[in-house]
Structure formats: C-alpha cells, structure tokens
Design a protein around this nucleic acid. Structure first.
Lengths: 147, 147
DNA sequence: TATTGTTCGTATCACTTTGATACTAACACT
DNA sequence: AGTGTTAGTATCAAAGTGATACGAACAATA
C-alpha cells in the first residue's frame, strides 16, 4: 500500500492504517498492553520472525506508539514501552476483540475482567455526545473540500 | 502471517485479524459503510489494483462480511453488500478513526455527524457493564488452558 | 452497422515483502 | 572455558503486491 501520503488524505481511518495497518503491528500493540516489553517476549508470544519484529518495532517507535528505553548498560539492552499514543490504541484493540468474540467465537477465548467489580468487560462503542451506540442511528458524513 | 490456525488461538483479536487484518480489507469495509457496493466504485475510491480488489472482495465475502448480489442478468453484474457481520465492524472503524483524528489530525478531516441531533460524533469505547471508559480502570486477563 | 463506453473482472510480470534459519555481539554465570 | 541470555543482523527462497494491459458481455450512440 501507499503509506506515505497519509496526511494528504482526509480520512482518519486511512491515516491510522498507514501507521498500524497490518496485523503484526496490532499484535505487538496487544502484547505491549498485556505488559510485554522485550524483543524476545514479543518474539516468543507471537512466533514472529526476528527480521519482521525488528522492523515493526522500529516503525511503531518512529510513529510514536512505542518508545525505546535502555534498561541495561552492560550489555546494552533496550525495552519497548507504550507511549500515550500507544495506550490510546487500546479501544481499537477492544473493538477488534469484540468483533472476533462475536463472529469467530468457537472454542476457548481469552477474557478480560474489570478488576474492581470482577465482571467481564463488554466493550461497546458509543457516541460520547448523544450516548447512542455507534451504528444504531443514521449519520451524515462530511468530506472536506480539497485544498 | 499465518492466517489459518485462527480458531486454535484463544485471542479474539488475532482471530479478527486473520479475517480483516490488512489495510485494504479495512478500507473496503469503510467504503462499504459509506454506501459503495460496486467493483469500480471501490477501485476508484481507493486506487487499488484490480487484482488486489478481486482477491480482497472474495476473502471478505468468504468470511461473511460482504455478500455478493446479482443486480443485473444481462450483462451479469454483481455488487457487494455488507452482511450483519460486516455492519458490526463499524465500531472498529470508528475507533481506528478516532485514534487517527487524535494523533494524525493535521489538515482537513472527514467528519461524522449524528443525523438527529446534528452534533459531531465522538466515538469512545466503554464497558457496557460498568459504564467505565475502556483503559481507565485496571483489568484482569484470563487466558484459558490449552486443550 | 461500426464505434465507443461501461462494468467486472483476468493475465502478465517486475518489484517488494515475508518468513525461516543461521549466525553474531556483548556480556553473565558456573 | 564453556554455556546461556538477549537483541538483534545476514541470507535467501517463496509469496505477495502493484501497474498495466487485456477480455467478455453487453448498452448506447452515430
């Protein structure tokens, strides 16, 4: 795909996709939210080839979703931590997960519980302004003029 | 990526990604939600090569997010319509869009308005059970045993 | 009737990406 | 001295992608 001209494009979805629009990147973000920080943790968790992992971690770092932190000087060792932008990707992960839960739900699934109430989290998307569930009300799309 | 063993994997996110884990598929779903149904509409909207588009439409149809409908017998012509599963992908699209709006927001952006109230839609993800915004409260992850 | 246009693709092929495997650097530990 | 750990890089075959040309089945127009 053409991943360069992202900010010429008025669609916020394609802008996001030019940053994290492939499965490996999304899985890395998932694992980062699960607390993984190190190269080998990601590699073992996902079964990704090291060349791929190197490249994806570099891209996510350049794009500001992860940051590299040196956790050892001798030998030099880096770990990858979520930035605010990376943490704000969590809602995307949850909605992707909810779709999979609903439409590819056979067998055992990983579950997420609210630590306070103990209830299982059921993520939904709502319009913060009206409170309506996304997709339940008609909407109007406004595409800006060029230039 | 290895897109086959999806239902052996307990993670609902990777199951979803094995279905629609690439940028073209997501953009097709975006355009389908915007009302596009035909091959050439998708092609012109996204600038995608026809070989790619053929393959992606076929996959999304096989996976049950789109369905093919014949809208003309002579000449034979098909269009692609969202299924329920495809429509339920909308929250994913909105959350991806909200991330892009927040972190790649330079220049003009496409906007979405609630047709009833006229207000701009601000999509957020919440836990339907507790009402809490996703990411604001600690959570507990339960991975099922193998087998 | 001949020409042009529309729609939904397939054929071809150069180019790029990927994935598997082996290997390296810089140490720590025994 | 030998083994283990961590974070990668090197190599290379196989697969995927993208640009372009082309095709089939018609409709509309001249």
């Amino acid at each position: 795909m053409d991943t360069e001209n992202s900010c010429a494009n008025p669609c916020p979805i394609s802008r996001s996709l030019s940053v994290a629009g492939d499965a490996w990147s999304i899985l890395i973000l998932r694992d980062a939210h699960a607390g993984l920080t190190r190269f080998d943790q990601f590699r073992k968790s996902m079964g990704i080839a090291p060349t791929m992992l190197t490249r994806r971690l570099a891209t996510l770092t350049e794009e500001g979703l992860l940051e590299k932190r040196r956790y050892s000087e001798h030998p030099p060792r880096e770990e990858y931590l979520l930035t605010d932008a990376g943490r704000d990707f969590l809602p995307v992960l949850f909605m992707i997960g909810e779709w999979g839960r609903k439409y590819r739900g056979g067998g055992k699934l990983t579950q997420f519980f609210d630590a306070e109430t103990g209830t299982e989290i059921q993520a939904i998307a709502v319009d913060e302004v009206t409170g309506a569930k996304i997709g339940t009300r008609p909407m109007r799309v406004v595409v800006p003029d060029e230039r």
